[in-house]
């Protein structure tokens, strides 16, 4: 079985019913931040608690990364253009993410999207590094 690790320990959790992004919420004013941080950028207080973000939202904007970024990008050796977008999660934040699709003709602002955890690259020892992404909601 392939060993895996998240790209960052404080980024997402995987529960029985799927993954969730880890965020902070301000106890004083209710503002949510992603990723977690210790102070509130809106009311400036330092009274934050952890919260999980909703898994589903709508595509707010998008692009496709068409060239291999320079360091500190540490993606797979063989570069494939990847989608990047902002997904509006109701009652929370608009989160920036890799998208599972990279065809701009198949992406539309307003599309329903859901959180997934995807393999990003392999470490030298073969450990698979996981990150979060958003994927179009599969219509039932």
């Amino acid at each position: 079985m392939t060993r895996t690790r998240p790209v960052d320990d404080g980024l997402f959790v995987e529960g029985d019913d799927g993954p969730s992004l880890l965020a902070s919420s301000c106890r004083a004013c209710g503002t949510t931040t992603f990723p977690r941080q210790q102070s509130c950028p809106k009311c400036t207080r330092m009274d934050m608690e952890d919260r999980l973000l909703p898994r589903r939202g709508t595509l707010w904007s998008f692009t496709v990364q068409g060239f291999r970024p320079k360091s500190p990008y540490a993606g797979p050796k063989d570069f494939t253009p990847y989608g990047v977008g902002y997904v509006e999660l109701p009652g929370a934040v608009i989160v920036e993410a890799i998208l599972t699709g990279n065809d701009p003709q198949r992406l539309r602002i307003g599309d329903p999207m859901e959180l997934v955890v995807v393999p990003f690259r392999e470490d030298d020892d073969g450990t698979q590094v996981l990150t979060y992404a958003f994927s179009p909601v599969q219509s039932a």
Binding site: V7, A74, E96
Partner: peptide
């Protein structure tokens, strides 16, 4: 992770 996973590019921001 923000840089490592390829999200930290000014070009992406301008595209979006």
């Amino acid at each position: 992770w923000y840089g490592e996973t390829g999200l930290m590019l000014t070009t992406q921001f301008f595209g979006m």
